[in-house]
Amino acid sequence: MAKLSKEEVKHVAHLARLAITDEEAEKFAEQLGKITDFAEQLNELDTTNVEPTSHVLPIVNVMREDVAVKGLDRDVMMLNVKEQESGQVKVPPILED
């Protein structure tokens, strides 16, 4: 795997929903390139037939009784919402007009 190009960094930034300037893309390309280069050492490992670990404990399917419990009040949940109208969260236009 080669170093990351500026264009790749811009693409990744878009996927991650981060606005990025040309200058930043260049800086991050260099830094991320170094980190991915470093990560290349994992290729020294023979991982044939090695199961991936996503979680260290053998916990599966944590069940609970199917009983309704009261959640938080809507008024409380709206306390941190910057823009709201009639008890609903307000966002800018989703589609360009």
Binding site: M1, V12, L15, F28, I35, A39, L45, T47
Partner: peptide, 23 residues
């Protein structure tokens, strides 16, 4: 965030994320 997004992207997932989980 970008390193993670990149590691999980199509085309790099196996080489980075899965490999790291195996490690």
């Amino acid at each position: 965030i970008m390193l993670g997004t990149y590691s999980l992207s199509a085309g790099t997932y196996d080489a980075y994320y899965k490999k790291a989980q195996q490690a």
